[in-house]
Amino acid sequence: MSMTFTVCGFIAVGFVLLITIFLVVSGTPAIAEIGFIDFIFGTKWASTAKEASYGILPFIMSSIYGTLGAIVIGVPLGILCAVFLAKVAGKKSSSLVSNAVNLMSGIPSVVYGLVGMIVIVPTVREVFDLPDGANLFSAMIVLAIMILPSVISVSETAIRAVPREYEEASLALGATKTETIFKVILPAAKSGILASVVLGIGRAIGEAMAVMMVSGNVANMPKLFGSVRFLTTAVASEMSYSSGLQRQALFSVALVLFVFILAINLVLNLVIKREKK
C-alpha cells in the first residue's frame, strides 16, 4: 500500500516537471527568434499586424503594477480583518465573518470578473469622471478583493499563534488594547503575515479571467486609468486563434509568467523557513 502513496506523491512531481519542461521547450524558440531584449523590454505588442512586433514589457509592467496595487489596497484590509477575527470579535460575529471569508475563497474568478464588469467598472468611470472605467485601477480593486481570503486566513493563523503571554504582559504594563495589537501582536506575527502577502501576490499575478473582464485588454504601457493587458490575459485572449510565431510568442509569455510564479514561491518558502527558525 505504501507503494501506492509513493506513486501518487511522485505523480504530482511529475506534473510539475512536465509543465516546466513543456513551457521551456515551447517557450524558448520564440524568445530566441525575437531576441531576448526585444521580447522582454520591447514596448510594442502587435502580434497580428503586417509588421508584427512582440514586445511584452507592457504586460510585465501591468502585471507588476496591478499586483502591487492589489496588495496596497487588499493587505491592510485583510490584516485588520484578521485582527478582528483573532482578537476582537466575539464567537458569533467571528464565525459569521470567517464563514463569509471561506465562501469568498470559493467564488469562481469569472464571477468576480462579472461583478467587476457590471458594478466596479461603471462606478470607477463615474467616480473619477473618466471616459471609460475598464482600466488598471478597476483591475486592482477586483484583485484586492480576490486576495482577501488568502491574506485573512493566513494572517489570522499567524496572529492566533502569538503566545498569549506577550499580550498579557503588554496589557499588564499599561498598554491599551490597540497599542498591544499594533506594537506587540502584529510584530510578533510578522513573518506569518508576510507569508500571507506573498501568497496574495501569487494569487493576484496568476489571475486571468477576472482581470480580462475589467482591465480593457489593450497592450498599453500601464497607466492607472488606462486600459491595460496583463501577462495572463495576453495568453488567454489570443491563444485560441493564434498561429505561427504569434502562438510561440504566447507560449513565451506563459514561460515568463511561470518564472514570476516560481520566484514568488521561492520567496514564500524562504519566508516560511525563517518563521520556523
Binding site: P131, D132, M212, G216, N217, V218, S227, A236, S237
Partner: peptide, 8 residues
C-alpha cells in the same frame, strides 16, 4: 485602431 478596450 486605437482601442480603449479589446474584448474577447
Amino acid at each position: 485602431c486605437k482601442y480603449a478596450q479589446e474584448l474577447t
